[in-house]
């Protein structure tokens, strides 16, 4: 236990300012993966495939500027139920399907595979993958990434020739064992307000480009300080489900949603917002960008906010909003 407490000393020391400031998690300065969106073939909102069903995976990204092509290589396999560390496939024979999506044009990777009919009752369904934005996944990578007992000394290089922005990814896919154990993706957000003004659905466009000609975008000014950012979830999005308690008895619980926030400019007080059925509206503080940090022309700058909404059971909905940033007065 003492060692556990000691382990926390490092992150706490970082929080307390004992180290240099690092790249903030919420600010999108390079392509950022948003997570696997899951949908069962024929039942698009369901994330939990049954054996024999086909699962579609889509991997959206957030871009700070123009979108780029993404090279995606991965496998679906029977994973080992690890207690800690990076999960890994049980063996080479445990691979269910290779997952490949290669696109030079800007498009999010989409792959699919079928859960074997004889998938073991208590096994883990695991996806391990690599994605390279603006480049090609290094073909040598995958073997070493799976072999965690002898990691490469020089670090993991995802993109071939180190060209592009690489991401290693993994996800355990909950498999539906019983009929009423299905999980659905979260519903769209009811509303997002910034400083009391509703942010409409994202009209698209490239962040940082002129926006005064997009009339539906609300405008904000640089150097305007802190404003409230409020998100509201639909009450019906919170599903009921069961977990097993310490005595292996089913315990009814209600979903809580995690909203991970990414922004192209400015600063967030919290990187995550959590909503519950009883408390569907939550807020945090958004600090509008400073002019010296985000130079803005008179035509304005389109700024985007991404909301990755998770139910932590495999469900994910990505939503984005945008506003037009004008130079401060």
């Amino acid at each position: 236990m003492r060692r556990t407490i000691l382990r926390l000393a490092v992150p706490l020391a970082l929080l307390a300012g004992c180290g240099d400031t690092l790249d903030p998690v919420s600010l999108v300065t390079r392509p950022r993966v948003l997570g696997f969106e899951l949908s069962v073939e024929g039942d698009a909102e369901r994330t939990t495939p049954r054996t024999g069903e086909t699962l579609n995976l889509r991997l959206p990204f957030a871009f700070p500027e123009e979108a780029q092509g993404i090279d995606f290589v991965g496998v679906a396999c029977l994973g080992v139920d690890v207690g800690f560390g990076v999960p890994f496939c049980a063996s080479e024979d445990s691979v269910i399907a290779p997952l490949v999506s290669r696109s030079v044009a800007p498009a999010f990777p989409e792959v699919s595979f079928t859960v074997p009919a004889d998938f073991p009752e208590d096994a883990e369904l695991l996806v391990i993958a690599a994605a390279c934005v603006g480049g090609v996944v290094d073909p040598e990578l995958f073997a070493s990434a799976l072999d965690i007992s002898s990691p490469p000394a020089g670090g993991l290089v995802v993109c071939a020739d180190d060209v592009g922005t690489g991401e290693l990814l993994q996800s355990t896919i909950p498999v539906q064992r019983i009929p009423d154990d299905a999980n659905l993706n979260p519903l769209p957000l009811v509303e997002v307000r910034l400083d009391g003004r509703v942010l409409p659905p994202d009209p698209g466009g490239v962040p940082g480009t002129a926006c005064t000609d997009v009339p539906e975008l609300p405008t904000f000014f640089s150097d305007s300080g802190d404003v409230d950012l409020v998100v509201e979830s639909a009450p019906e999005t919170f599903e009921d489900y069961f977990v097993l308690d310490a005595d292996d008895q089913p315990l009814p619980v209600v979903e809580a949603l995690q909203h991970a926030l990414l922004i192209t400019a400015g600063e967030l007080e919290a990187n995550f917002i959590f909503t519950e059925r009883e408390d569907v509206r939550e807020d945090t503080i958004y600090t509008l960008p400073l002019i010296e940090e985000r130079p803005v022309a008179a035509e304005g700058s389109l700024e985007r906010l991404w909301f990755s909404i998770r139910d932590e059971r495999g469900g994910l909905r990505i939503e984005s909003r945008a506003y037009c940033l004008l130079p401060g007065v």
Partner: peptide, 19 residues
């Protein structure tokens, strides 16, 4: 730490330890 691997289910990166 030779890299990070994104845990999509939990929206967090896991460290990949070197030797």
């Amino acid at each position: 730490v030779i890299g990070g691997i994104y845990d999509s289910l939990n929206n967090v990166y896991q460290p990949v330890n070197g030797r």
